[in-house]
Design a protein around this nucleic acid. Sequence first.
DNA 1: TTGCGACTCCTTACAGCGTAAAGTAACCTT
DNA 2: AAGGTTACTTTACGCTGTAAGGAGTCGCAA
Lengths: 257, 257
Amino acid sequence: MVVYAGQGDPRRSIELLWRASVAEQRPGPKPGLSVDAIVDAAIEVADEQGMAFSMRAVGERLGRTAMALYTYVPGKNELVDLMYDRAMAELPASYPLDDGWRSAVTCWAHDLWEFYSRHPWMLQVSQARPVLGPHEFAVIEALAAILVSTGLPGRELRGIVGAVNYFVRGAAQTVAEARAAGNATGEGDEEWWYARSAVLLEIEPDLEHRFPMLHVLESDREPVDPELPYLENDAVENFRSGLKVLLDGIEGAVAKP
Amino acid sequence: MVVYAGQGDPRRSIELLWRASVAEQRPGPKPGLSVDAIVDAAIEVADEQGMAFSMRAVGERLGRTAMALYTYVPGKNELVDLMYDRAMAELPASYPLDDGWRSAVTCWAHDLWEFYSRHPWMLQVSQARPVLGPHEFAVIEALAAILVSTGLPGRELRGIVGAVNYFVRGAAQTVAEARAAGNATGEGDEEWWYARSAVLLEIEPDLEHRFPMLHVLESDREPVDPELPYLENDAVENFRSGLKVLLDGIEGAVAKP
DNA sequence: TTGCGACTCCTTACAGCGTAAAGTAACCTT
DNA sequence: AAGGTTACTTTACGCTGTAAGGAGTCGCAA
């Protein structure tokens, strides 16, 4: 199940995201935790266990019970929002345009790609409605800043920003989830693929005739890096050539009216 | 949480996907259900309640308990695989090339886009490892058949197929999940956005100065269809202009070596 | 005809989840 | 010192997927 963003109290969520809380002197025992500590711990747990991490697990990592977290954070959904935005702080806020926009967009995409593979759970936070946190803004701002330099109008920019974003996210999802599934079952990509394709060919012997174009699609394959596992190699290759096509398309839009 | 595909017994899964079961005469009571009936019911439930549907809900729709389903299907993961592939049977297996590949790809993308908005839960099935069902194959085969006509080599085709696929999926995710979130909270997009942007501007008054490029990105906006809600309109516009860029990129690859 | 074995479907049960509610102990203000 | 506020715990509820075992139904061989 995907976790949907922004379902709680808007004011509370946004105040947390922008850390707009005033640290006044108050009665009662000193807080032993903090929102930041909780978010950091939750990110660590999610990096290890995926998005199916539990509030109990986060609490345990901090030496508390699950319920202790609810003093700082309204619920798991809001915590995920905070994790999402905080993790994005890892990404650069701007990219130099010295080598032109094309190179800058490539860097942006590459950084985001690597970021997703460090934090695969990010890919399971719904993208529908933005979290509206400062770092999410900064990441899009960085891409927008590059693309604005092409002089394209807002209407086209929005489509391009979306396309680049979707592309990186999608491509990252492919490797990230392949890796996650591999880890979960303990079998690497090769074994997974081998076991299934063997059964598949046995049950449906004339696969190649039923889907001849898929066969064409599989042709002309050569490993980019023999160190990497099967599907991952595939994904890297597809990422490169797909991004190239995308950039060519932008270039076309820049050249023509 | 995203549902990962293909974690169970490979043979059992693939036999179910390709309906390779022999309906022999067997002892015991006549089956009151069938895999198809269960998959259909599950799709109906998922269309209504999203990917967080429960086995109990599916059983109830069929007048059975949850455990009755386990006679036909090994578990929820495998059921999701079957739902995924069966739903894809709705999509055309081929597209005419009479108006050229560009028009055909546009149709393919549009159909898939509409398909995802009919079955938003599809977007939450992991894409990492293909489900390897006949209809999933058919959908990719249809796109591949169009693109093979451009004469591009396999290496480039893979990147393009990936990019188009990711793009449609990503764009669809944006609307689908926006709609889902809206339904869940009962508030439409406008109210959602209004409530949050107001609080945001109150807490962070100089947003425009902190993220000037986002402001550029928001310029030049005009509603495509005033009937549609805010975010959805946005998504449709982005889909069109993003797809155009993508197609231009492919055209570039076709023209140049 | 009878009994066996395979089969469908049910009930019960368990461990895990997010979190509501209530209780306890710590601390500041008056 | 009293009272109010807060941090955190314990307990509990309803939900989830599914393991285990039992009840009833049917085909077939003896």
